[in-house]
């Protein structure tokens, strides 16, 4: 057994294979990408523990991720928000965690995507468990996991083939995802269309819609099909439980001097029609804002915000998101909703 020879061959081959693999995927248009995983969320969540009353924390679902551009907000207000929104999730468990487990009394902006906000309080349901699992991870994460995250960031930033997200996108490049794309027939009668990654994220979880989504209508249509699937399979909303749950935290947060703001981000096309039918504003948003009795902003109510068009009906393109964020921040400032602005 000539192990020196074997290991030499193995090293040469693995370097060649990985280089070829990386070049192949780059040639297919893939580029390195940070993953929006639990570890990245936990790093941002950790910032809340040291935040002052001047700080701003964002909760919500993917619309808050896409539509709130952190640079634009910082340019307008002087404060860079802490982004804790989670795609496909209710904001309620995250806000509960902030109210119960921190002393934060700055500004919290909660994005209200009706289909998710009013969805459920059942712990095993996806909109709940997606964010709750992140909260749990934040408290349970080990030092080894923190180190793993730190070490993985430079790799994620430099290698396109390390494209694998908790979301399990249809175009992830890890082995499990590649194998799962092999299909023989449709034994389980699954109707879920392929769901491709349509955004990029950076280290402080600032998300931008990818150029391809904004410009390639055929690609945007693949995302629209997914919204159609989710819309047609979603259970009915649970307004009573979600409102009751949220109001408890609203009261506690306001009582300790916190500044809560509710925002309804734009949607368009079929998603907007579906939302208006299933969760009409008068029965959901208006009732919520009236009960919460805090500053609230619905995109339909402002000339600067109502004309945006979402390429895949649910989120703003990167350039529109910057405009939306800037205009919304101006409206809030003029309204006196943001009380602790940095003026320098």
């Amino acid at each position: 057994m000539n192990l020196k020879k074997s290991i030499t061959i193995a090293i040469i081959l693995i370097i060649t294979a990985i280089s070829s693999w990386e070049l192949y995927w780059r040639s297919q248009g893939y580029k390195p990408n940070i993953e929006d995983d639990t570890a990245l969320w936990a790093v941002q969540r950790g910032k809340v523990d040291h935040a002052s009353s001047n700080d701003v924390v964002l909760f919500g679902s993917s619309r808050v991720l896409f539509d709130f551009q952190l640079n634009a907000w910082e340019n307008e207000t002087g404060i860079r928000p802490i982004q804790l929104a989670t795609a496909g999730a209710s904001p309620l468990p995250g806000f509960r965690d902030l109210v119960e487990n921190t002393k934060f009394n700055g500004t919290v902006i909660v994005g209200v995507t009706p289909g998710l906000f009013f969805s459920t309080t059942y712990p095993m349901a996806s909109p709940w468990s997606r964010i709750q699992s992140r909260v749990t991870y934040f408290y349970d994460r080990t030092y080894a996991q923190r180190i793993n995250n730190m070490l993985s960031i430079p790799l994620q930033s430099n290698f396109a083939f390390l494209r694998a997200d908790d979301e399990e996108w249809s175009d992830d490049l890890n082995l499990k995802s590649l194998v799962s794309r092999i299909k023989i027939g449709n034994r389980t009668n699954s109707q879920l269309p392929p769901f491709y990654r349509f955004s990029d994220i950076d280290l402080d979880r600032n998300v931008k819609m990818s150029d391809r989504t904004a410009k390639d209508t055929a690609f945007a249509n693949t995302i629209i099909k997914v919204w159609g699937f989710f819309g047609s399979t979603a259970p009915p909303p649970d307004k009573a439980s979600t409102m009751a749950f949220f109001m408890e935290d609203v009261q506690n947060f306001i009582d300790r001097g916190g500044n809560l703001i509710l925002v309804r981000c734009p949607s368009s096309g079929g998603v907007r029609i579906g939302e208006n039918m299933a969760l009409p504003r008068s029965e959901f948003w208006d009732v919520l804002t009236s009960k919460a009795n805090v500053k609230s902003y619905h995109f339909e109510d402002y000339e600067q915000l109502k004309h945006f068009d979402c390429p895949e009906w649910s989120h703003l393109s990167a350039s529109d998101a910057t405009k939306f964020t800037t205009e919304l921040a101006k409206i809030m400032k003029n309204d006196g909703a943001l009380t602790n602005l940095k003026t320098d």
Partner: peptide
């Protein structure tokens, strides 16, 4: 078995395992 296998084949198999581990990107 490795002792009976040619060093080149062992090296190739070793590289295949390393490659699959790398692209599997186990999430720990």
């Amino acid at each position: 078995v490795s002792e009976k296998t040619s060093p080149i084949l062992l090296g190739v198999l070793w590289a295949v395992m390393l490659f699959l581990i790398t692209i599997a990107q186990g999430s720990g």
